[in-house]
Design a protein around this nucleic acid. Structure first.
Lengths: 335, 335
DNA sequence: AAGTAAATTGTAATCGTTTACAGTCACAAA
DNA sequence: TTTGTGACTGTAAACGATTACAATTTACTT
């Protein structure tokens, strides 16, 4: 079913059909009606592929979204935010999942470029910075979310990770802890390093020494969180509190603690980063730094649209704030 | 950067470049090398849009995936399974999120058809059955996952929901419960009804009467689970065990129980459906019926590929089994 | 009635590939 | 030398839409 068949059936030219379909230009009311009737009757569906080939604008009706882990509820939130904006703009989403693999990421970005998406929202891994740079300088609409490779002049939407880390650790310090273990994310990722900065800042401010033994890395995955927890618990003088810097590692940590029958918050205090939907269902409910994942996605999508409408406006870097959600996994709550 | 420019730069025709790029046909080694060098040097990226327009096959390098809730870890699992197969086949995924809204679903399906995806994997909502039917009879490659509208002759991959529900409730019955509340999913959805069948079957087999008061509906969302739990707890003689038929409703249930300081498994037993990553981190860890979400996705994608390669082979309905994961939320475990 | 501007519609080129078909070339056989 | 045969390579026509430009019709003025 093509525009040509519609044209024939309605006794007009393809140009007229196209005009009616894009309800642009001036077509006589009667003619438009007749065409629309035929369109309806023949159940015609426009071919976006053909359209996109002809129309050189960025108007492809598809946005790309590249995330690192679709199974992490945080990124699911982000995706939902992006989706809601995309849908409002009649766009559809091409979502890819890199698993933090730079090669996969490159493949997906190339695929999306080949598919001529309008633009891409990307949670960057490490190692492809020059590639992004080339895309941006070629004028391709790209928005980075959640992470910001150093020295890159590109639109970004991220959260204030340092402040988030600071808040979390300050809370622990305020409750009297001085041996505070941290489970860090992936080395070299901006958000991981910033959260770590926040940790150090809070300790420094309180005059608490920073002890190497208490600094572990869990690479943002559950098994990493578990191993890191194990490491923290088996040192000479284990921490009295743990700051886990993402939700999956928190899960690993919880499981390890449960296995060892170490109870929260009595034996150890635990504070997480990222408020997942299950955080409140834990016993005790988890105190955590809440990241606005959905808003991150919404803002990224809106920024992308802004960029599309105005390719030469200056680069924007949006930073959203976190919120400390105090529940009971660090104690300190009135009963 | 088009194939034409490559052709000029390499001093050959566009046909030759195309042949080299699709490493088909016989092109002289030297020529191919020269072309590839130019491709490399000029950083050429094929235009899939143009390609797809010319090539009428189903070979579009894009699969569609329509799910109902990207924030539900179960569907994230499914998506990941689909993704892994897609990636192996150098395909990229167009993912849409219907939120159980039939209108949105229709819009997305139309979009995907317009984008000429190779085929679609769909978690169907209610109400668009005739639409699917038309697609399938038009020869469009469609695979349904997780749910199966009645009377539709279409490829499906689902789990054995009735057996899953049966296993869960049997476990409760075996532990001596006779007042077992159920929090059902969305009325009219095959998987919800099948799980409910399993519930009734287990009770009937044990000679336990089925009591209307104990049957509630939570529509597969957290708030629904919460309200349903509230309803169950405020009847005259509350249940001693609850079967929650999906993960989000289980979360709602847990929160309601926590609020009311009802402890698991001492005051009430709880069994869930769908083993989320957090289920094991709960205290006590959640006993649940595990659905193989990832495998569901893998199988759906493979079925889709099979369908693409062989459009006229007979319709397949794949059913995967569940597994009862016994933890401690129903009690009955040796300490 | 003729002329003119405005409104509507049609013609045909174009987007970047793929591919049927045709053409070229080298070399072996007659 | 001519002819036939592969092995390559090139030419040009699609694919389905959009749109500049041309053509036609309509409406209005004088």
């Amino acid at each position: 079913m093509t525009i040509k068949e519609i044209a024939e059936a309605a006794g007009v030219s393809t140009a007229t059909v196209s005009r009616v379909l894009n309800n642009s230009d001036k077509v006589q009311g009667k003619t438009a009606e007749r065409v629309l009737e035929v369109v309806e009757k023949l159940n015609y569906r426009p071919d976006h592929v053909a359209r996109r080939m002809r129309v050189k604008t960025t108007n492809s009706l598809v946005f790309g979204l590249v995330i690192t882990d679709i199974e992490n509820p945080f990124f699911a939130n982000v995706a939902k935010g992006v989706e809601s904006v995309a849908f409002k703009n009649k766009h559809v989403l091409m979502i890819c999942n890199t698993n933090e693999d730079p090669e996969k990421e490159k493949f997906f970005l190339n695929s999306m470029l080949s598919e001529k998406v309008s633009g891409v929202i990307l949670v960057p891994t490490t190692g492809n910075a020059e590639f992004y740079d080339k895309l941006v300088s070629d004028g391709f609409p790209l928005v980075l979310v959640d992470r910001h490779p150093k020295g890159l002049n590109v639109d970004t939407v991220a959260i204030n990770n340092e402040e988030g880390g600071y808040k979390a650790v300050k809370r622990l310090v305020d409750l009297g802890h001085t041996r505070i273990g941290i489970i860090n994310g992936i080395k070299g990722l901006s958000n991981a390093e910033e959260r770590f900065h926040g940790y150090k800042k809070a300790l420094n401010e309180a005059g608490v020494p920073i002890i190497d033994e208490l600094i572990t890395y869990g690479n943002y995955v559950e098994s990493g969180g578990r191993k890191a927890t194990e490491a923290l618990l088996t040192i000479n003088e284990p921490p009295t509190a743990i700051f886990s810097t993402n939700n999956l590692m928190t899960l690993g940590c919880l499981k390890e603690l449960y296995k060892r029958k170490i109870s929260i918050p009595d034996d150890i205090a635990l504070i997480g980063f990222d408020d997942s939907t299950w955080a409140e269902a834990l016993i005790p409910p988890l105190t955590t730094v809440k990241q606005p994942g959905y808003e991150l996605g919404v803002n990224a999508a809106e920024l992308l649209i802004k960029r599309l409408n105005n390719p030469h406006s200056s680069i924007m870097n949006i930073v959203l704030n976190t919120e400390l959600v105090i529940r009971n996994s660090c104690g300190g709550l009135k009963p």
